[in-house]
Computed example of a mutant assay.
Amino acid sequence: MKAIIDNIECQRDSPRFRQVLEENEKDLDTLEGKLEKVVKQCNQMVAAGKQFNQEQEQLIHILWDLAGYFGNDTNVQSALNRMLAALGEAAKYHTILVDQAARAVTKNLASFIKNFYRI
């Protein structure tokens, strides 16, 4: 995006100034459209991430129930507990990732577009 508008041209309000101003306005419109696409895609990603987290938590609960079934078999129960620990850790970090994406990208960028970009 070229942001060069000569001060002398501004003062003259010449046809060249009008042309450069129009080009910059078009660039801003293009940028706004691209930023809105980023926000929309990030919102979809956050929604999909939340759905994934819910499904993963259901899997953890089902595996926890399965581990209880093998209460007498320490080898199977030990293997399931290790898998549950790994899945729980992954779920925790994935939840943090989705939350950070929602706050850092979606919320802040949408706020920027709304408050600072549209003057």
Rank of each mutant, 00 (worst) to 15 (best):
Y69F: 11
I119W: 05
Y93T: 14
I8Q: 12
N75M: 12
L31W: 02
K34Q: 15
F70M: 05
G71P: 00
K2T: 08
I4T: 09
K114S: 14
A67P: 01
L28Q: 07
Q51S: 11
A90S: 09
L80K: 01
M45H: 07
K114M: 10
Q100W: 03
E23L: 10
H61R: 15
A90I: 05
Q58A: 11
A79C: 06
A102D: 14
E57F: 06
Q51W: 04
I4F: 10
R16I: 15
Q77L: 00
A47V: 07
Y117V: 04
V20G: 04
M83D: 10
I119K: 13
V98Y: 03
A101E: 06
K26C: 08
N43C: 06
L97N: 09
V38S: 06
C10N: 06
V46K: 02
T30L: 14
A110T: 02
D13H: 12
K26E: 14
Q41I: 12
T74C: 01
G71L: 02
Q77W: 00
F112A: 08
E57V: 08
N53P: 03
A85D: 13
A110L: 00
E36S: 08
N24W: 06
K37I: 05
K107F: 10
M83P: 00
K26T: 11
K107A: 10
E55Y: 04
N75P: 00
G49A: 00
M83I: 07
A86L: 09
K114W: 02
V105W: 01
A48H: 05
E9M: 05
E89N: 09
I96P: 05
A48P: 07
I5T: 09
T106R: 11
K34R: 14
A47W: 02
F52P: 01
A85M: 09
H94M: 11
L66F: 03
N7P: 15
I96Y: 07
G68W: 02
Q19V: 10
L80R: 01
V46E: 00
N43I: 03
E55L: 13
Q41N: 08
L28M: 11
F116P: 02
D73N: 05
D65M: 06
M45R: 03
V20R: 15
K114F: 04
T74S: 13
G88V: 02
R118D: 10
F116Y: 11
C10Y: 05
K107P: 02
L21W: 09
D6Y: 06
N72H: 11
N108Q: 11
D27E: 15
A48Q: 12
N7S: 10
K34F: 08
Q100D: 15
F116R: 07
Q54A: 15
S111H: 05
A110S: 15
T74A: 10
G68T: 02
L80F: 03
I96S: 14
S111V: 04
T106S: 15
Q41W: 07
E25N: 08
K92N: 11
L109N: 04
V105F: 04
E89M: 08
K40D: 15
Y69I: 03
A91E: 08
D65Y: 07
A101W: 03
N24D: 05
V39P: 05
D99F: 04
R18T: 08
V105C: 15
K92P: 00
N7Y: 06
I4S: 13
S78I: 01
D6I: 09
A85R: 04
R82V: 08
